[in-house]
Simulated scan of single mutants.
Amino acid sequence: MQKSQVVEENVVKAVKDFAYSITSGSKVVADMSSLIDVTSQLPLTSFDYWERFIRTEFSLALREREPPKWKFWSKPKERLTWLDLISWDGYKREKALRTLRGAAPNTFFFSLAVRRLNDWVPQVRDAARESLPELAKVTAPDFVIDSLLIALSNWNSWGRIEDADKKILLLIISQKEIANSMRSRLISSSSGPMPFLFSQLGRTNILDDYLPEIANLAVQPAVRAKAYRSLLERRIAWVEGYKWIWTDIRYCEGRKTPIVAERKLETKVPVLRLLECAAEDRSSVVRKVSAEVLIRDLEGAGVYAKELAEKFSLDQSSAVSERGRFALSKLRELERDNSS
C-alpha cells in the first residue's frame, strides 16, 4: 500500500472519530486528539488538497451520523468546531471565526483560519480579518510562523485577498515574538522560500536593523544576496502582484509580468565596506551582486574601485569575472576621459 493512501486512510479515520465525538452526545467537549495528531503530519505544500479532502470526508461523516428525520427529538445540538472553518456553509465559516476561542491546536488549523482571508464569501473574509490578530496572540508562535510562511509564499496567487488582508498578516508578523522568530528562520533555514519571504517582509521595517546580520549569517546564498543588494541600493523591493501583458493579441498570446514595489532604506553601513564584505562571500551569487553595484558606481568606490574590479576579474565564477573585466574596461575609459 502506498504511503499517500495510508495517510489518507488515517485522515479519514480521524475525521470520522471526531464526527462521532460531536454527534454521540456523550461528551461535552469534542475529542480532537487523533485529528490533531494526523493533521500535524500533513505536508503544508499540499494544503489545498488536504483542505478539500477533509471538508468532503467531514461532511460525509456528519451525514452518516444524522438521525432519521422522524426522530426530531434526538437531533444533536449544533456545536461549532475548528473544522467548521472549512464548512460548505459560509454562515458556519463566519460563525466559527467569530465564535472559536483559544489557541489553534497546530499549524494546520491556524492555516485554515488564515486561508479564510481568501474565502469566496466577503463576510467570511471580514470575520477572518477581525479574528486573526487575537487568534495569533494565543497560538504557539511556531504554529503561527509556519502558517505565515506558507501564506506569504502563496498570497500573490490568492485572487480574493485584499490589501487590508495583507496588512493584517503583516501586523501579526510585526508582533515582537513573531518578528524575532521570523528573522531567525530567515537566517537559519537552509531550504524553503526564504528569498521570497525576505522580499515580502520588506513591506514592513522589522528587518531594517538586522539586514547586516542577515547579509553575513543567512544560510541561503539568495537571502544573503538580497540583503546585500538592499543595503547597497538603499532600498528593499518586493513583488506586489502580477499583471497580464499581451505580446500578440491576435493570437491571444501574453505573459504575466510582476508588479514590483519598493521602500527606501536608511542604513549607516558605508557602501565600500558592504562591497568588500560581499566580494569576500563564499557564494558567487553574492559576489555577483557586489560586482554589479560596483559597475553602477565606479566613481563612488574611489581608489578602491580598481582593486575590487581586478579581484572580480580573477573570480572562479564566469558571471563574476565577466563583470570584473567589464568594470576594468569602464575604469580605463574613465581614466582616458579624465586625462583628455
Results as ranks from 00 to 15, higher is better:
S147C: 01
Q2L: 12
T257P: 00
V285Y: 12
S21K: 04
E66L: 12
E162N: 11
D142H: 12
S317A: 14
D84Y: 12
A151F: 08
S111V: 04
W50N: 09
S157Y: 11
T107I: 00
R287G: 03
A319M: 09
K256M: 14
E292N: 09
R115L: 05
E322M: 09
S21N: 07
D163W: 11
Q5A: 14
M32Y: 15
L83K: 01
K288V: 09
V285S: 11
F312Q: 03
S284R: 08
K137R: 15
R183I: 15
F18M: 03
S284H: 15
R255H: 11
V38N: 07
N118W: 03
F198E: 05
N216S: 14
W238T: 03
E64W: 03
L298P: 10
R235M: 06
E310D: 12
S284G: 11
K75G: 03
S21G: 05
P193G: 06
S340M: 12
S318R: 14
Y49C: 12
R63S: 14
L275E: 10
D281C: 01
V15G: 00
E8L: 07
E233T: 15
K16E: 15
L274R: 08
I145E: 08
R116C: 15
L331N: 08
K137N: 07
T23H: 09
L169N: 10
R296V: 01
L232D: 08
R224S: 01
L217S: 14
R65D: 10
D142R: 13
L298A: 08
I172S: 11
I145W: 02
L100A: 05
I145H: 02
E262C: 02
A327G: 06
R93N: 00
Q123I: 07
M32K: 13
L201D: 05
E276W: 05
K264Y: 07
R183D: 05
Y49R: 12
P122F: 00
R235P: 02
I245R: 13
S284C: 06
A291G: 07
S157G: 10
L308M: 03
R263A: 00
I214Y: 06
S33Q: 15
